[in-house]
Design a protein around this nucleic acid. Structure first.
Lengths: 120, 120
DNA sequence: CAGTATCCCGTCCGATACTG
DNA sequence: CAGTATCGGACGGGATACTG
């Protein structure tokens, strides 16, 4: 346990200071309200239709949901599957690398339990 | 290991769907390029002066660094200590709850190792 | 249903100059 | 040194209407 703590600190300290730092590049990828929210929802359920995501994320608009889904798809962490039925059906789900992000959410959850300010 | 995986998925799935969800509230707190970058730097070294942070984060401006530091201080994850010397010296460092975020960075690092697209 | 297209407004934020 | 103040432009993103 203590060893792990030390290890990751070493890892962070040793990370390159320039824009090539993989940790910082990853942080940038997910430093967006809509991206994290969409990913968080996609963790809950194997597949979502476009309309389901809109309902799950009430404040999001068509435009932003589409934009966010395209971005996450381009990064390769979600996949879009279109069924040419009538009416049209599209299903979104996490890819393997998307699933691999769940431990990040778990650590956030643990932190929230202990430290999240509860004033609101 | 598998048990942990299952546990955190249960936790995410069971999270409230409304705006009170602590995980989503935490995600919002850190869904910002400057906040994550400043926190990441503060993990590397126990204290930073204002000017050191500016150098460590080249693209940031006075305005945004100040704003970000005040926000993180308000959340309670960093602390500001002012020494009334001449010239003025101010030191920023993580609080306990700030340090508690390092496992999140660690998971991001692990993810980056395995899945970060390397095209650029 | 699952989007796209367009318009438009607010805020974010960079640049610059100034201060205790 | 460690900021604050001010201005102005870019752009994120909302609202609405439309389409395959």
């Amino acid at each position: 346990m203590e060893k792990t703590e030390t290890e990751f600190l070493q890892r962070i300290i040793a990370s390159p200071a320039d824009e090539k730092c993989p940790i910082r590049k990853s942080l940038d990828l997910f430093s967006s309200k809509w991206r994290t929210w969409v990913l968080f929802e996609l963790c809950k359920q194997p597949t979502y239709r476009f309309g389901e995501l809109r309902k799950a994320i009430p404040p999001i608009t068509n435009t932003m949901l589409t934009k966010t889904l395209r971005e996450l798809e381009a990064i390769g962490i979600i996949q879009r599957k279109q069924f040419n039925e009538m009416p049209l059906r599209v299903e979104y789900s996490l890819t393997e690398s998307g699933h691999a992000l769940t431990p990040v959410f778990f650590e956030i959850a643990k932190w929230a339990d202990q430290y999240l300010p509860t004033e609101n």
